[in-house]
């Protein structure tokens, strides 16, 4: 049974990757608009900004104002990466050291709490609820269950079956729902960097020292 589930995880992972690749190719098929206006800054500098300084909480008013949500989101994603690492070790059958297990359990635990917190926020805040669709709740829930089972599996290895099951569901849901942002985030962020970098806005191109 476990062996079948393990292969199920690998298969669903491959389906997920292939689907995401197809989605990116489909997105690219919408065509690229050539750029004619003379550049004022370097696109690459904008991209570096977008993935570096631009991600820092002090750079954005929205994150400064909602530092708890920003922290929650960061912890959530940290927990997800740790849970994927645990899944990887399980599928590849290598034992994690005790300190690594401890670290993963902390990250996954904090990630789970953050995920639940963000879900509760989405349910309770009217403006947030109004801009949400079922997919937003489902995606959050699918990831929370995945995190919960990853955490439980560290302490109760007998729950492997459930962890594998949740992983298969998550992998299959990723390309279909909003979790596809695991790829499109990087795509959109590169575009953000290129746009502001070319225009010399971010990072700011100083031609006149004030």
């Amino acid at each position: 049974m476990l062996s079948i589930l393990r292969w199920g995880v690998i298969a669903s992972f491959l389906i997920c990757i292939i689907s995401l690749i197809i989605m990116v190719l489909k997105t690219l098929s919408f065509g690229r608009k050539p750029v004619y206006a003379k550049s004022q800054g370097k696109g690459i500098r904008g991209i570096l900004y977008a993935f570096g300084k631009g991600m820092m909480p002090w750079e954005k008013e929205s994150t400064r104002r909602h530092i708890l949500t920003y922290t929650g989101g960061t912890l959530y994603h940290g927990g997800i990466f740790a849970a994927f690492f645990c899944l990887f070790s399980l599928v590849m059958s290598f034992e994690l050291s005790i300190p690594l297990k401890f670290l993963c359990s902390i990250l996954i635990g904090l990630g789970f709490l953050s995920g639940v917190g963000l879900l509760v926020k989405r349910i309770l805040l009217i403006p947030l609820r109004k801009i949400s669709c079922v997919d937003d709740f489902a995606a959050n829930l699918a990831v929370d269950v995945f995190l919960a089972l990853a955490l439980l599996n560290i302490f109760y290895p007998g729950l492997e079956t459930f962890f594998y099951g949740a992983s298969i569901i998550l992998f299959l849901y990723i390309p279909a729902g909003k979790v596809r942002h695991c790829v499109f985030f990087f795509y959109a962020r590169i575009l953000f960097g290129l746009f502001y970098g070319r225009r010399g806005v971010l990072p700011r191109k100083i031609r006149f020292e004030t």
Binding site: M23, T27, S62, T63, H66, T69, G73, L125, P127, L128, I131, S132, C133, D136, K178, R180, H181, F184, F185, Y187, A188, L191
Partner: peptide, 11 residues
């Protein structure tokens, strides 16, 4: 790409 990326986070 943009239309595939909104998280509906409301920030």
């Amino acid at each position: 790409a943009y239309l595939n990326s909104c998280l509906h986070c409301g920030l």
